[in-house]
Write a protein that binds this DNA or RNA. Structure first.
Lengths: 219, 219
DNA sequence: GTCTATACGTCGATAGAC
DNA sequence: GTCTATCGACGTATAGAC
């Protein structure tokens, strides 16, 4: 694309982004059913009809928000694992991934939250369109668990699908109860979840205490 | 209520129950947004207007379905814990509760599933009206975890709220991925979840293998 | 690009015949 | 008890002026 063209579309791009942000916020807080085009438009002082200049339909807009949410989560998890080096310990990698996903859905804003909070309640056509991205992210987790399993460090008597879903279910539920101004930061929740999932709830010698970290949003 | 009166309302009661069952099924499978009065009425070959003879409003109907779902789950959990005797081991009690809740949301039909699948996406007024029942069930879990915590058998470095939510999040997510005709029965999933949650994912001497049980819906 | 106006479907809910 | 008919509000989306 030429610089000329890019300059011409700048205002359009900016408005488009404002609409996406507003849609992400409304989706994260009120759900798909409560997210009308009018509600989105109202929140940025725009007429609902004007929105159709930027997006073909409500579903196209929603889809882009959800897709962004998955991509952000995936990037966060991949970055956290990559930060461990070339051949990370597979349990460390799993732990880092759990913390990163928790931080994404609790602390990275509206997009990842919009994605996980609406996952189970979307119309079939949106689910289908979103599937490929969701699958790719699912594969990241499948690989993490397979690597940990292959290392012999995970118990071999469990269904790996159940393992994966235990992790994602517990983490994706967190936005329903987490209070941003409470005593735990998103990272704190992530580390507690990781510790409980990996080492279990029982008090044993194996369990290492989890240190709470000071963060800006602590009280 | 006199026998006379009861007899007169029998047909009404029967129809009322059919409506509730249809609503539970639609709610469990299509979510609150996809559950219109017409959709419910259609599924039992009735006109949507006729439904208002039995229920004051859509919300009243939905509320009764959700309330039934919580009550069924609560009764299942209480029964499972009570079956352990007067002074059960608190870890055994927690394990039994996890299995019972899993069996409820995966194998007890539409009502518990309708409840957990819609929890995060309901209009504010329904949430408020449902709160008292949800709280009572939450207290059952708080008591279970407090008892286990007080016994010193659970690690003391974790937030108990995070513990409770880890458990319920993992279990309430199960209906999203569980395949009724797959190799695992609801009880199998419950026992695997309980084992992973309580003893963790790591292979250690502490972890006991979980036996899979034969059930009618196995393949 | 954004506006006003409007088409058109579906929603929950009511009125009144039978 | 269940039906047909209908109301008003709100949903997505389009047409056309500016």
């Amino acid at each position: 694309m030429k610089a000329e063209t890019r300059r011409l579309t700048r205002k359009s791009d900016h408005t488009r982004q404002r609409i996406l942000d507003a849609a992400a916020s409304t989706l994260a807080n009120r759900g798909y059913a409560g997210t009308s085009i009018k509600a989105i438009a109202d929140s940025i002082d725009m007429q609902d009809a004007s929105l159709y200049y930027h997006f073909e339909s409500k579903d196209a807009l929603v889809l882009e928000v959800l897709r962004t949410g998955v991509v952000l989560s995936e990037e966060a998890v991949n970055a956290a694992v990559s930060a461990l080096g070339e051949q990370p310990d597979p349990i460390d990698a799993l732990r880092a991934a759990i913390v990163a996903h928790a931080e994404a859905v609790l602390g990275m804003g509206d997009y990842p939250r919009a994605n996980v909070r609406n996952f189970g309640q979307l119309p079939q056509e949106i689910v289908s369109a979103q599937m490929s991205h969701q699958r790719r992210y699912g594969k990241v987790w499948r690989n993490l668990i397979e690597a940990a399993m292959a290392s012999g460090r995970l118990r071999q008597d469990m269904n790996t699908r159940a393992m994966r879903m235990l992790i994602l279910g517990a983490l994706n539920w967190a936005p329903e109860w987490y209070k941003p101004r409470g005593e735990l930061s998103p990272g704190d929740v992530g580390r507690q979840m990781a510790a409980m999932i990996i080492e279990g709830l029982l008090a044993t010698g194996a369990a290492q205490p989890v240190r709470r970290q000071k963060q800006g949003n602590g009280r």
